[in-house]
Simulated scan of single mutants.
Amino acid sequence: MHRLSDRSGPPVVRPGARQVGHSSGGSSGRVRRRPAPFAGPARVTRTAGQDVPAHPVRGGYEICPVCFWEDDGQDDQDADAVPRGPQDRWVWWGGGMTFEAERAALLEPGRLWSAGEVLGKPGPVPAVPGVYGWRFGAAPYDGLAVGELLYVGIAPRRMANRTSRQHLRSRVRYHFRGNAEGSTLRLTLGCLLGLELRRVGSGRRMTFGVRGEAELSAWMAEHARVCWVAYPKPWLLESALITGLDLPLNLDQNKHNAFHPTLKALRAAARQRARELPISG
């Protein structure tokens, strides 16, 4: 986000600009300028106490010669958006929204929390918006790292036309004790562990059944550990984390990850198999 600072001095005429409507009456005349195709700096910007040419094209990822800021074309009115950079990657700001503290809280947490601790009352997880991260003491699938951050999730989801009531406490607790229909993390882990996905109820919901969900909850109680960081707009932080880190268990926004095709295929195969089986009682 490159903000143009105050401008001083007379206007700079673009090279090749044609002056029209000039009065012969001296200072009372008015000058109008019709811009020609760009042939040089359009104006002078005062930056860091110096007069330097402003960037000729906004959003062109030019580097300021004085402050070395990269101009991504973003301004105050869209400061909360997460723009894509010139390589179609999410931009990490050199100032402002760097997420450095939040990244550190998830990559190097002061401690990790178990199912027993999270599900206890009152429990340590705050009822606020934020991002949570998961590690596992045993690999749910060959080749996945043990003890490393493998998945991040958010609460609440970004919703265009209504406000979600979800928060960190409700989502983290649900992942530990819910079912695969309401938890994409549980769906992923169950598929990786080889549990059988089944249609339940009317046939539109898919879970691992009573026995399978209980088995998954027991596995998570033994091996899964979670940490979190509060953040008012967690979807912004989530997007940056998924793009900048190796998070193999995230599917959304994560096609660049090497494990993405494997995980996507395993989940698709489990769903297809569930459709072929009768509804589970």
Rank of each mutant, 00 (worst) to 15 (best):
S23T: 10
S23Y: 03
R34L: 04
R30N: 07
S24Q: 07
S28D: 11
V44C: 07
S24R: 12
A39C: 08
H22C: 13
R34D: 00
A48C: 15
G40E: 00
G49T: 01
V44L: 14
T47K: 04
A48I: 02
P35D: 08
H22S: 14
G25N: 10
R33G: 03
H22W: 12
P35W: 08
S23K: 02
R33F: 10
G40W: 00
R33M: 06
S24Y: 13
G29V: 06
R30Y: 09
S27A: 15
G21P: 02
T45I: 10
P41V: 04
S27I: 15
R46F: 06
G21E: 14
R32H: 09
R43I: 07
V31T: 10
A39N: 09
A42E: 04
T45Y: 05
G21N: 14
R46N: 08
S23R: 04
V44T: 06
T45Q: 06
A36Y: 01
G49C: 01
S28N: 11
S27V: 15
G25Q: 09
G25I: 03
R46Y: 05
R46V: 14
G25H: 07
R33Y: 06
G29Q: 06
A48D: 10
A42H: 09
A39V: 00
R34G: 09
S23I: 08
A42C: 05
V31S: 05
G49Q: 01
V44E: 02
R30E: 14
R33H: 06
A39W: 00
S28V: 15
T47F: 00
G26P: 00
T47C: 15
V31N: 07
G49E: 10
P37C: 07
G40H: 02
H22P: 11
R34E: 08
S27C: 13
A48P: 02
R34C: 03
R30S: 11
S27F: 15
F38L: 12
R32A: 15
P41W: 01
R46L: 14
S24N: 11
H22D: 12
H22N: 12
S23F: 04
P35G: 08
G29L: 01
R32L: 15
G40C: 00
Q50W: 06
G49V: 04
P37L: 09
Q50H: 07
G29F: 00
S23N: 11
G25L: 07
P37H: 03
H22E: 14
G25K: 05
R46W: 07
S23W: 05
G21H: 12
V44G: 04
P37K: 04
S27M: 14
V44M: 07
R33E: 02
A42N: 02
R34N: 04
S27L: 12
V31M: 11
Q50M: 07
A36W: 04
A39D: 03
P41R: 05
F38G: 11
A39K: 03
G21S: 14
A48S: 13
F38W: 11
S27N: 12
G25T: 08
R32I: 14
V31L: 09
S27T: 15
R32T: 12
R43L: 13
T45M: 13
R34W: 02
F38R: 14
V44D: 01
G21C: 08
G49Y: 02
R43P: 03
T47S: 02
S23E: 11
H22A: 13
A42L: 11
S24D: 15
T45N: 12
G26S: 05
V31Q: 05
S27H: 15
R30H: 10
